[in-house]
Simulated assay, not measured.
Amino acid sequence: MSRPQEPHRPFFSFGNPFRILSPKSSQLSPRLRSQLNAFEETLLERLQKLTPKDKDDVLSLAWMKLAMESLSEGHNDVKNLITELELPVSDWDEKWIDVYLDISVKLLDICIVFSSELTRINQGNLLLQCLLHNLESNSPDQFTRARSSLDSWRRHINSKNPRVETCKPILDSLVESLNLPKVKNSAKGKVLMHAMYGAKVETVYICSVFASAFCGSAKNLVELTIPDSLSWAQAFTNLQTNMNTEIRNIFSQGEVTVLKELGAVNACLEKLYPMLEDELVPVDVESFKSSVSDLRRMTEKLTQGLDLLTKEVDGFFKLVLTGRDALLCNLRAPGTPPDTMLGRNVEGQALS
């Protein structure tokens, strides 16, 4: 996974974003207000869907897949809104473009980090498969080989990925980017800025959860404060409060592996390890076979979850990259026809 290097464009801080996030202004036409309401209602529904119903959902691969799907849907919603607004890139304020390019490159960077960690965890799966092969064989030295595979897996899964440490400065910058540029004399621009704000809040928060899960620390969790006037504010606050409380509780217990599926595999291995200490066949053969069966089942669940999540992360990366490329193409094409707009001219593009 790689991205092209673009010349750095300056990042601007635009002051208090809440001033432009007041309740729907009378300056908006009924059509624009309806379009913004539809976007925010969908955002609210996605946030409610992400709020875990059970604490076991927190930091599970299934929840993380759902969260990444939600981000892709949100960015697609912004793309579709731009198309509906019929807002050509030629009408974009330069400040909007600077913000967009700055945020999109940071999202690409953090996706690369997430993919790197998922790849590292998947490499541990190869050790688990080797372990299972040894446990299920009938060779004289099966337990010696199994212990060796188990020790290798422990060392690998407890090692740290240095790339994950780069998440903190990226997240800090993304939080700063929630400051929005002021919009003057453009009702469509105000609708766009409102939509961008919603998509960015969800994106920044979800990325902070992923970064926390992968680094094994709550230091990457963010606590975002958003205006109460937003229709989706309560749904977001509920999600953030529930997730952050449970994540901090998980870390306070000193869990070695915070991802639920990894934890389940680790529990099976802890049960098996004492049975492998002797050179001879375990005394309780039935218990041994049951433990091996449980390990295989948990390993398959982990493998499937990792594969699905990796596809979602890759898909989100491509979505952001395609949207960025589409915008840059528009900016480089003088005299672009009015009907060639970001959101219409490239399939699958998105606004971050």
Rank of each mutant, 00 (worst) to 15 (best):
residue 348 G to M: 01
residue 304 Q to I: 15
residue 56 D to P: 00
residue 260 K to D: 01
residue 278 D to Y: 03
residue 10 P to M: 08
residue 168 K to R: 13
residue 110 I to E: 07
residue 47 L to D: 05
residue 83 T to Q: 09
residue 76 N to Y: 07
residue 280 L to N: 09
residue 122 N to D: 14
residue 96 W to Y: 12
residue 4 P to W: 06
residue 226 I to V: 12
residue 37 N to W: 09
residue 121 I to H: 04
residue 152 S to H: 06
residue 225 T to H: 06
residue 229 S to V: 15
residue 320 V to F: 11
residue 208 S to W: 05
residue 187 A to I: 00
residue 46 R to A: 00
residue 88 P to T: 12
residue 162 P to D: 13
residue 72 S to M: 13
residue 132 L to R: 03
residue 230 L to K: 04
residue 329 C to H: 13
residue 36 L to D: 10
residue 288 F to Q: 03
residue 149 S to T: 08
residue 86 E to N: 12
residue 265 V to I: 13
residue 142 Q to F: 11
residue 133 H to W: 00
residue 320 V to R: 06
residue 270 E to C: 03
residue 72 S to I: 08
residue 71 L to A: 05
residue 224 L to T: 06
residue 81 L to P: 02
residue 272 L to C: 08
residue 155 R to C: 02
residue 210 F to V: 04
residue 96 W to I: 03
residue 53 K to I: 04
residue 258 V to D: 03
residue 134 N to A: 12
residue 38 A to W: 14
residue 313 V to K: 10
residue 284 D to A: 13
residue 119 T to N: 07
residue 59 L to R: 05
residue 295 L to S: 14
residue 65 K to Y: 05
residue 118 L to D: 01
residue 161 N to S: 06
residue 109 D to R: 07
residue 139 S to K: 02
residue 291 S to M: 04
residue 239 L to P: 14
residue 290 S to N: 15
residue 27 Q to H: 15
residue 334 P to G: 10
residue 21 L to H: 10
residue 223 E to V: 06
residue 180 L to V: 01
residue 45 E to I: 05
residue 290 S to W: 15
residue 42 T to A: 13
residue 319 L to Y: 00
residue 279 E to Y: 02
residue 306 L to I: 07
residue 164 V to E: 03
residue 142 Q to G: 04
residue 315 G to D: 08
residue 5 Q to M: 14
residue 282 P to E: 05
residue 9 R to C: 00
residue 288 F to C: 07
residue 253 Q to H: 11
residue 144 T to I: 05
residue 277 E to V: 05
residue 321 L to S: 08
residue 323 G to E: 10
residue 46 R to S: 04
residue 248 R to G: 02
residue 217 S to G: 02
residue 117 E to C: 03
residue 212 S to G: 04
residue 271 K to L: 15
residue 188 K to F: 12
residue 79 K to M: 09
residue 64 M to G: 06
residue 200 K to M: 12
residue 51 T to G: 04
residue 2 S to H: 09
residue 147 R to H: 09
residue 50 L to M: 01
residue 127 L to F: 11
residue 24 K to M: 13
residue 78 V to G: 02
residue 63 W to V: 09
residue 277 E to A: 03
